[in-house]
Nucleic acid binder design. Structure first.
Lengths: 156, 156
DNA sequence: GTAAATATCACCCGAAAGTATGATCTGAAT
DNA sequence: ATTCAGATCATACTTTCGGGTGATATTTAC
């Protein structure tokens, strides 16, 4: 049995355990004295650590965050195909809607007679409109009017 | 004489000076012991101050700045540069260079008279050119010609 | 309501645009 | 040398354009 062996070697075990305890005590005392001998350095190190952390915390909490602004230019390509009517230009020139309508048909290359037929009015009316049109646009012919209208985005 | 007076009070002066020195020594010893008594606290305070400063410095030096990215959209217009003369169309219509020249001036809105002056020829010549032009382009007026020429990329 | 702006139409006239036809002249191709 | 395309010019004629003037509805703004 195992208990029999223990009993037989009782004294040996007791001696061994006592020796182990003594060694442990000695080691513990040694460590204790090391700590006591260096208590000041340890304390100082702890203070250093704590106050470094405090300093970091203070700096992070109390300073304004650093902000670096990076400006990235992004090129946007605009195509002429998407035509946007220039209402401002119409108002600037003081063109009425009817006059603009006539202008658009002139730019398509229609004659006064054709425009009159399309709008169900007389040629004389179209002449009056176009005259006022040229006056307001400061041009002297229908071809110039068409050219200028395209430049000013009054027509596509 | 002054030296006489000093000689006469020699002992008094010696006593006074001795007393003053003694008091000074006592005060010095007192201050020394105060410092020695509190040497640990002073040292700890100094460490705390130094390492707080270190922490602040570390935090300021080593933190990454916040990066704010601002995207600025830069508009790039292509319409002025995207014109490529349509030589094929000119050849398909059978337009001569002179006719094309006249066509371009017509599209600018110039009158026959103005075109004639610019090209140093007579109005009749311009009329001949424009007539042949309209015939080849299958249009009936200068305004139509200008419109069609722009559509066909014969002019910008 | 009245005034101002807009849209409509008419008539006249001169200028410009466009058509038709024909005539040189030149340079390049055959 | 001849042919052919392109450029030039002219004359005659028709059509369209654009300016000028005036008149009448219609709508919009105050």
């Amino acid at each position: 049995m195992i208990s029999d062996k223990i009993y037989r070697h009782k004294q040996n075990i007791l001696y061994g355990v006592s020796l182990a305890l003594l060694l442990f005590l000695l080691k513990w005392l040694e460590l204790r004295f090391i700590i006591i001998d260096h208590i000041f350095e340890i304390y100082a190190g702890a203070i250093a650590l704590i106050f470094t952390a405090l300093g970091i915390w203070l700096a992070l909490k109390l300073t304004k965050p650093k902000i670096t602004t990076v400006v990235v230019e992004k090129e946007v390509f605009l195509h002429t195909s998407d035509f946007h009517f220039n209402k401002e230009e119409q108002e600037r020139l003081g063109l009425s809607n009817r006059e603009l309508e006539v202008l658009q048909l002139i730019a398509l290359g229609l004659s006064n007679q054709e425009i009159a037929e399309r709008l169900f009015v007389s040629v004389n009316t179209i002449k009056t409109h176009s005259s006022r049109l040229f006056e307001k646009m400061e041009v002297k012919s229908r071809t110039q009017a068409a050219e200028k209208a395209k430049r000013m985005r009054l027509i596509p």
